[in-house]
């Protein structure tokens, strides 16, 4: 074909995607920014308030409760999950494990079940007096079986972290397993000869070797934890739990936007969350020195 039209051909081929992205991706994002400057109760009922939505939410104790809860969940999740998934991956990485694939599947399968099913399952497990967990704790340790996991404020977050642990440990484990298998075996041999014991080998060979994946998993887990909604929503039955102990930022958004009807305020919450998560991710990447590597 003629040269000048050959030059335009790529743009024409890109056009459908770019167009649909502009319409369904970029436009809603821009629109939601604009929406966050209004109090709304319908498309024809919008009242411009400028930055007042943001100011109000920064002063709203409920918002900060949500931030606190979400941060607790993220911290607990990351701090507990990562060592656990890394540990499992290390165990499965041993060459002498038989049926490694079977174990890998077993640990990964909670992820395949879907949140809703898992939440329903855990509602039964966590039920007071008759639930599986209480019965087990009572039988093994003699703990009272009337512990109301999802109705006691101080136990809600631990319960949520527990469920998240069950759901996502296998997922992260798979990432780590892949990373571990990419570490050169010869390095371990050299380290053995150099006199490094198991822990020294882990610290000097394994960890630096999986560092990129480790950072990736940490950042991803943090971002994901901050978006906690479905699990809390399902387990606490459409509410934010006793004493708002299960109130997460997205749940706060949901309550104000979709139950209360003010989508403008909800947009403000959403953008605040996005900025928070962005900041957090940047901080994490900065601390771990990623992006500055000469590689």
């Amino acid at each position: 074909m003629p040269l000048r039209t050959a030059r335009t051909a790529p743009y024409l081929f890109l056009a459908p995607f770019v167009l649909s992205f502009l319409i369904f991706g970029a436009y809603p994002i821009i629109r939601s920014v604009m929406l966050s400057f209004y109090i709304t109760s319908g498309p024809e009922a919008q009242h411009f308030v400028g930055l007042d939505n943001y100011l109000h939410l920064l002063q709203d104790p409920d918002f900060w409760t949500a931030v606190r809860n979400t941060a607790t969940f993220a911290l607990g999740s990351v701090l507990l999950q990562l060592p656990l998934s890394l540990g499992l991956a290390l165990l499965l990485n041993r060459a002498d494990i038989r049926g490694r694939n079977v174990f890998r599947f077993i640990f990964f399968s909670p992820n395949l079940m879907g949140l809703v099913f898992s939440a329903l399952l855990f509602m039964l497990i966590l039920a007071p007096r008759f639930g599986l967990l209480n019965a087990a704790l009572h039988a093994l340790f003699g703990l009272p079986s009337t512990t109301r996991w999802l109705s006691t404020p101080s136990l809600v977050m631990p319960a949520l972290i527990m469920v998240a642990l069950w759901l996502y440990t296998g997922f992260n484990m798979v990432y780590f397993l892949a990373a571990l298998q990419a570490v050169d075996g010869e390095l371990y041999e050299a380290a053995t000869i150099d006199g490094a014991g198991r822990w020294a080998q882990f610290w000097h060979v394994t960890l630096p070797g999986i560092r990129p994946v480790l950072i990736f998993v940490v950042v991803l887990s943090t971002i994901g934890s901050f978006q906690l909604f479905e699990l809390a929503f399902l387990l606490l039955g459409n509410s934010s739990g006793p004493d708002q102990a299960g109130l997460t930022i997205v749940m706060y958004l949901y309550q104000n936007g979709f139950l209360g009807g003010d989508l403008g305020y909800a947009a403000a919450i959403g953008w605040t969350l996005a900025l928070m998560v962005l900041l957090l991710a940047l901080v994490q990447l900065r601390i771990t020195g990623t992006g500055k590597e000469a590689r």
Partner: peptide, 9 residues
């Protein structure tokens, strides 16, 4: 070692 096995980090 043949491929030196230097600790890359």
């Amino acid at each position: 070692f043949q491929s030196y096995a230097l600790y890359p980090h």
